[in-house]
Amino acid sequence: MEASAEAQSRFEAVVANEQRVEPRDWMPDAYRATLVRQIAQHAHSEIIGMQPEGNWLTRAPSLRRKAILLAKAQDEAGHGLYLYAAAETLGVDRAELTEKLIDGRQKYSSIFNYPTLTFADVGVIGWLVDGAAICNQVPLCRCSYGPYARAMVRICKEESFHQRQGYELLMTLMAGTEGQRRMVQDAVDRWWWPSLMMFGPPDGASPNSERSMAWRIKRHSNDELRQRFVDMTVPQAEILGVTLPDPALAWNEERGSWDFGEPDWSELMQVIKGQGPCNAQRIDRRRAAHEDGAWVREAASAYAAKHGRKGSAQ
């Protein structure tokens, strides 16, 4: 769409005045493209995010844990759908986004390319991975694009359950045997650094951040959010009785914050490029689910064609 100067300045005023941009408003093409990329990547992350924990659904140690885990995986499917719906308000089609995920043209969060080796990983994912996701997502509730912000409000309400169930699971294990405590520590050791990487590369190496902040899509820099996460998490680790695997972790009186070590950014780049431990497996699984589900979609279409728009509602 050709931008009239008036449309452009109205868009800028809406953003500057903390109002929300809505689907049919004029917006710069680059703003639309940035949102499509970010919302699609976010949606894909929710959908792929079902897999690491889904690995333990059939082997949860009790019916209670199984019901909780199933509810969490269902939430993640739901979050993915809220986000695909928000992306569609920008003029893209969900089926097309799914295809781009499957053929590797769009990304999802690198964290889901790590394997879940023990049931303690389920707890640590809830505590650290969902905790980091909450840090990232709460500011998105004030994102300048209305449909994305509204989807995030709903998602954040539900994420709180995810984090708490994880922490409670870990407290239960920590109150168990020595072997169970070792299992928790092992999971923390494996997930801590990847969790810090969830906030993205350091500010100096994050090319799109500045523009996203000017557009009020993003509210805080990667490093600010990472610091916030560390400050929230260290006391939780102490209460839990686990050690965070970072020798550089130290309270900085002057800053009123925790100093911490530098994540291995080359590892993050490797995983983003597809060299992580589970990249191929995650996409294969997603493709198989899509293809195996084709008959359901075809049956629903055939049923609708036969019975008309109302289906069997009446």
Binding site: L81, Y82, A85, E88, R94, R150, A151, R154, R297, A300, S301, Y303, A304, H307, G308, R309, K310, G311, S312, A313
Partner: peptide
Amino acid sequence: HVGSLHAADDRMAL
């Protein structure tokens, strides 16, 4: 209004 979804027919949408 809370959002949107795709469905083959009204019943499935519900």
